[in-house]
Design a protein around this nucleic acid. Structure first.
Lengths: 220, 220
DNA sequence: TAATTTTGTTAGATGAATCTAATTTAGTAG
DNA sequence: CTACTAAATTAGATTCATCTAACAAAATTA
C-alpha cells in the first residue's frame, strides 16, 4: 500500500509526463511545491518499490506498475469530479479541490458505485479522459485554441487547467465545453485573440487563456 | 487545522466519553490500537492546542473546543454514512469503513451538499444521532435489549456497533431498525434471549448481540 | 573550451507519530 | 500499612516526509 504522499508523487509524475514528455526532478519539485532533495529521496524510495525507474541525473520515468497505480489514482480523481458535478450538482469550478482529497480513499466499492451511477463515463467535467480500472488512458489529440489561425473554428472539448480561478473566469465569459468558437483576429505581438461564440461576437482572450483551451477543429 | 491523527484522537475521545463517562489513557490506547506512551504525548499536544484538559494521572476530558471539533468530525462521519446508504445505495453494513476515510475531508461545501440532498437527517443508518453544525449532539435515552425482561417489547432504533461483521449477522437474521421485537425467554445462566419479531417467532440471540441493540420500550 | 548557470545529489537536521524499556504513581489486596 | 498489580509517565529510539547548506554534474553561453 502506498502512502498518501507517495500517491501524490505518482499522480503528479504521470500527469507531468503526459503534459511534457520528459519529467525532471525540478519539474516535480515545482509542481508539488517540494524541494529537490526531498524529491530525489522519494524517487529512490519509489524505485525500491519498483514504481519508478531511477538513475541519477536522468529524467524520471514511471515503471509499468507505477503507471498503473498512478492511472488508478487519476481515475478516482476524475470519477469523483464527475460524481460531484453530475450527482451532487457542484459547478465544474468547485470540484478539483474536493476530488484531490477523495482520490486517496481506499475503497474499490465506493468508486465502483460512482462509476455505475454515472453510467461508466469516459471523460470528466473538464474534458479529461478517465482511465479504466487498470489505469490505462485513451488519449485524444485535441488542438489548443492558441494554435488556431484566424478564420478557424474549434469545438471546445477540454480545459488544461481545472483550478477554481481559471474556471470561474471561463464561467464569467460563459465559456463551456461543447461550444463552437471562431477565431476572428490575433494580435501578433502577444497572441491575444478575439473570438466569437454563442451570443458573444467579440470576446478577447489572452494567450494565457487560449493555451488552456482544447478542442476539435471544425472544417468549414 | 488538526492533522488526521489528531482528528482520530478527538473523535475517539468523544465517542468513549459518551459510551462510558470517564476516559483513561488505557481506554484510548486500546480503542485506537496505539501504545499508552504515544497517547500520553498526544494528549499533551492536544492540551497545548486547548482541545483537551490534561492533568497527569487524571481522566482525559475534551475542552469545549475539543468537543465541538470532535462533534463536527462525527457529524461528517454520520452524514457520510447516511449519504452512502440513501444516495449511493450501499448496505448499512458496508458504510462504516468508507465513512472512516471520508470524514477527514476538509470541505464544508461537500458535507453541506450531502446534508441538503438528504433533507437534513437527524440520525444515521445505524440510529446514531448526527451532531449539528456546531458539533452538538442530542441524545435520546434508549434501552438496551439486554436489559429487557420477559414479555417486554422493544422497537429497535439503533445499534451500538457499526462493524461489518455485526451488521451482517443482523442482516442474516433479518433484524433491522424499526422492527418490534418481543422477549419470549431469557436464559438466566448467560443472558441468552429468545425473541420474536416479524415472521420470526423463535430467534435466539446471545447477550453479545442483545447488548448492542437499542430501542424504545413499547407498553403493551 | 572555459566560465557560468541550472539541475541534481549528499549530508545532516527537524518535527510528527510511533515504538520499547524503565520508572513512577495510583489503586487493590493481604 | 505493606506488598502487589495496574495504569501512566519519562526517556530514548525509529520511521517518514520534509528542510537547508554544501557540493557535484550537466547544460549553456561566451
Amino acid at each position: 500500500m502506498n502512502s498518501l504522499t507517495e500517491e501524490n508523487y505518482l499522480k503528479t509524475l504521470f500527469v507531468l509526463a503526459n503534459e511534457s514528455g520528459e519529467v525532471n526532478v525540478i519539474d516535480l519539485s515545482k509542481r508539488l511545491n517540494i524541494k529537490m532533495p526531498t524529491v530525489t529521496s522519494m524517487m529512490k524510495k519509489l524505485a525500491v518499490k519498483k514504481l519508478v525507474h531511477y538513475e541519477s541525473y536522468k529524467p524520471l520515468r514511471l515503471t509499468e506498475r507505477g503507471k498503473k497505480e498512478a492511472g488508478i489514482i487519476i481515475r478516482k480523481h476524475r470519477l469523483t469530479e464527475m460524481f460531484l458535478v453530475q450527482v451532487m450538482n457542484f459547478g465544474w469550478e468547485e470540484v478539483h479541490e474536493i476530488a484531490e482529497q477523495l482520490e486517496h480513499t481506499h475503497s474499490p466499492d465506493f468508486f465502483e458505485k460512482m462509476d455505475e451511477m454515472l453510467g461508466y463515463p469516459k471523460i470528466d467535467p473538464h474534458g479529461s479522459p478517465i482511465p479504466d480500472k487498470n489505469g490505462k488512458i485513451e488519449w485524444k489529440k485535441y488542438s489548443k485554441l492558441s494554435n488556431c489561425r484566424v478564420g478557424e473554428a474549434l469545438k471546445l472539448t477540454a480545459v488544461i487547467d481545472s483550478s477554481e480561478e481559471f474556471l470561474k473566469f471561463l464561467n464569467s465569459r460563459e465559456l463551456k465545453l461543447g461550444l463552437k468558437v471562431k477565431v476572428k483576429s490575433i494580435e501578433p505581438f502577444d497572441g491575444t485573440m478575439v473570438i466569437s461564440y454563442g451570443k458573444k461576437l467579440n470576446e478577447t482572450l489572452s494567450q494565457t487563456v487560449t493555451k488552456r483551451l482544447l478542442g476539435e477543429l471544425i472544417q468549414g
